[in-house]
Structures are given as C-alpha cells and as structure tokens.
Amino acid sequence: MTDLDALRAQCPPPAVVPPAPDWIRVEGELGMRLPRDYKELVAAYGLGEFCGFLTLYQPGALSEWVDLTGPMPMWLRGQLDEIPSAARRPWSPPCNAADLFAMGVTGNGDHLFWDTRPHDAPDQWTVAVAERVRAPWFTYNGTVTAFLVDVLGGTTRVPWFPPGLLDDGVAFTPSRLRSRVPVTGLTTRSSISTRAIRDWARANGFELPDRGRVPLAIREAWEAAHAGGSADPV
C-alpha cells in the first residue's frame, strides 16, 4: 500500500476534484521539479483543509493565500532571511532559508516547508514545520503524504498542533472558491488585512479565535464578499 492509498483510506478524497495542474508549466515557473507524491496528492484531493486545520499550497490556487506559485513561499523565505543571525540559535531552521520552500499552512498559522535538499531529487525532500517564522521547528523525515498519514493517524504528534485535532474524526473539506481572487500587497496584508478579515467575520456571524491564522473557509468567504463578483461560493 502506498502512502496515498493509506491516506485515502484514512481520509476519503472528494468525489469531484478540479483537473490537475500542468506540472511541466508549474515546474518551469518555479524553476524546480516537485515531489511525485505531492503531485499525486494534489490530483487526488484538490485544494482544501484536512481536519479543518491543515491546507497544502497548490499551483494556481484560487486564493493567493495558498498558491504554491504565488507570493507566499517567497515572502516566507524572505522572513526567514530577515531573522538576525544572533537571534537564530534558539529556533534555527533545519537548513538554510534558501533550501526551504513553503508548501502548507495550518489554522494556527503554522507553516509547512519542504527541505529541498538535494535540490535535484525532490522525491527525497522532507518536511519541516514552524509554529511561527521565529519559533522552534519540527522536522519529519519523510514525504508530505507520509506526514499527513502519520499526523492524521495519530502516530506523529507535532507539539503545537491542537491536542484535539482528531477528536471529531478525520475529514477533508474542499475549497469553496470557484474563480480566482487576486490579493496584492503581501507585506502589509499580513497585519492590516487579517485584522479587517477578523472584524468582517465577526460582524457576519463567523466564530474564530483571537489569535492565529484565519481559517481558509473564512478567508474565502471574505475574499468572495470583496471581489466585486469575481468569486462566488459554491
């Protein structure tokens, strides 16, 4: 049984999934090959959240917040580069920032990265998780699909993931956006727009925590409401 087979058994994928990206074009745009397991994972599930908590970035995602080919991976790498060397020791990344490529995010604002060493062997890339950019790291010596299998199966515990993550069972919730919502101004968006999204969400009856990342479903609802008709919830 492959890791993807195991994940399908744990967490059934949606019945209908958007067509897989043009991987040749995507890899050309990124300037690197991507792991085979990741491409198979995207083809099987599409964009969405595992357990309402964990979202993998995907090429050309309808929201730039989770677009593998959008600004987020490079912006996060820039944030790592900006940490003063004297401040790195307590929470040093597992490798140089240039070797890390962001590919996922959680409801608490944790970021998932590939450790892209060796660069010419993507099927050997492993997973690194940061609670925040300037916080301790968790590393997983395996593919992102194997990581999902172990986390959703309860055999791997990321210390800062919620203790009750699996209490309501394991499920995958597909993304609700069906047309692209461009978002610009990333460096200021992280602070100003997040506050605006929280205020809008509460005013419109959504419940969300005071801290951490705004859940994908709420981001999508906000983007749909502010897109001038360019995005409609399903």
Score class of each variant (00 low, 15 high):
144 V>C: 11
30 L>T: 10
86 A>F: 15
90 P>N: 05
25 R>H: 14
165 L>H: 08
167 D>W: 09
6 A>V: 06
38 Y>P: 05
210 D>G: 14
34 L>M: 09
177 L>I: 06
210 D>Q: 13
184 T>I: 14
214 V>H: 00
62 L>A: 00
174 P>V: 01
224 A>L: 02
219 R>F: 04
115 D>Y: 04
53 F>S: 12
131 E>L: 05
111 H>S: 11
31 G>C: 12
211 R>C: 06
113 F>V: 04
222 W>F: 12
73 P>S: 09
13 P>G: 08
37 D>E: 15
98 A>C: 07
64 E>T: 14
9 A>T: 14
124 Q>C: 15
120 D>S: 12
37 D>I: 03
164 G>Y: 08
70 G>A: 08
16 V>G: 01
206 F>N: 01
223 E>L: 03
28 G>I: 03
11 C>E: 01
116 T>N: 11
233 P>L: 15
71 P>C: 05
61 A>S: 03
38 Y>K: 02
33 R>E: 14
139 T>D: 10
72 M>K: 01
193 S>M: 13
48 G>N: 05
234 V>E: 04
217 A>Q: 03
229 G>E: 08
16 V>C: 04
136 P>T: 07
160 W>V: 12
42 V>P: 00
50 F>N: 01
33 R>M: 11
58 Q>S: 11
12 P>C: 04
51 C>Q: 06
72 M>D: 04
109 G>S: 01
57 Y>H: 11
13 P>N: 02
115 D>H: 13
169 G>M: 08
157 R>Y: 04
14 P>R: 09
